[in-house]
């Protein structure tokens, strides 16, 4: 019997398979097609203080082995998440969930985390300082070590739950930003958010996406994510949630070898809704194939 259990900041998850925020809603679309309790946990849709529609459409474009989105954090706002989404989730998911939180100002990040903090279903926070699709917020907090430090420090003050800071790859030095988060008291790092990307329609000769530029994700970005996780692992002691292009059990092992304690799966959920369930089922045999008894043993083994 192989061991897939992982200790994520004091909470054990049955396996390291975590659907990524923005590709899994608040769980319902998927709980209708399979029992989502097979997952380690999942990261719910990026939530802000107020309700948001997001960016104009079209906000999806296809690429080779990937997708560009510019959804722009559409969500019902934190009050509705508490009054409607979490009670619905309680009926179909019995494990702690990751609350993904975003904001346009320091005050908003703090407010939303504080508001969600006493919700018993929430095990961890994932603070998104890396959304490429919103102006005047989001990614701008995650592009400088100083502002990343500040957001981390302030949200840590309002909740005792573990805080994972979600980082952008669209920076010159992701290591310095990860270290700033660790120095400010972050419990973990979530990486990477989407890489900025673009498509142009040859017929209209205009960008496909209404916002012109969006966030690129999918299988194509796996090597980018891997090298960033690898570098950050060498620089910080806190756990890393590895995200980027994972679509099967072998990708999970590869990301963990680079230094991830667990992984998130994003774009692949959209085209293959059963992918996370399938990976959970495939993981033990993939581990056996590569002579792995306990997943925790391989975290960062490539170093």
């Amino acid at each position: 019997m192989v061991n897939t259990k992982i200790n994520l900041s004091g909470i054990f998850i049955d396996n390291p398979i975590i659907p990524a925020s923005g590709t899994f809603g608040y769980g319902h679309e998927f709980s209708n097609i399979y029992d989502i309790n097979c997952l380690g946990t999942f990261s719910f849709k990026g939530t802000t203080k107020e309700e948001r529609f997001g960016n104009p459409t079209p906000r999806i474009a296809e690429c080779a082995e990937g997708i560009i989105n510019s959804v722009g954090l559409q969500n019902p706002g934190v009050e509705k998440v508490i009054s409607e989404e979490l009670p619905k989730l309680k009926k179909c998911f019995f494990k702690p969930v990751i609350a993904n939180v975003s904001g346009f100002s320091l005050e908003e990040y703090v407010y939303t985390c504080q508001r969600l903090s006493d919700q018993e279903q929430i095990g961890w926070f994932e603070v998104n300082i890396s959304c490429p699709n919103i102006h005047g917020g989001g990614m701008s907090f995650g592009t400088f070590p100083e502002s990343a430090f500040k957001v981390t420090k302030e949200v840590k003050k309002v909740t005792a739950k573990p805080i994972y800071m979600k980082l952008s790859p669209n920076v010159t030095d992701i290591v310095s930003i990860a270290k700033a988060c660790e120095d400010a008291g972050a419990d973990g790092i979530s990486m990477i958010n989407t890489s900025m990307g673009m498509r142009i329609d040859l017929k209209t000769k205009k960008p496909v996406i209404a916002n012109k530029i969006g966030g690129f994700s999918g299988k194509a970005i796996k090597p980018i994510a891997l090298q960033m996780v690898y570098k950050v692992y060498e620089a910080v002691k806190i756990p890393i949630l590895g995200i980027g292009g994972i679509s099967n059990a072998e990708d999970v092992l590869e990301m963990m070898l680079a230094g991830a304690s667990a992984v998130q799966i994003g774009a692949q959920n959209l085209i293959d809704p059963y992918v996370c369930k399938n990976i959970v089922e495939d993981l033990p045999s993939a581990m056996q194939k590569y002579g792995i008894n306990s997943l925790e043993d391989i975290i960062g083994e490539a170093h």
């Binding site: 809603g25 679309e29 459409t57 959209l270």
Partner: peptide, 17 residues
Amino acid sequence: EERMGCGFGACMGCSCK
């Protein structure tokens, strides 16, 4: 009609007001 990511409500790619 709208450009869709998933087609089953997960990605919010095709939303309208």
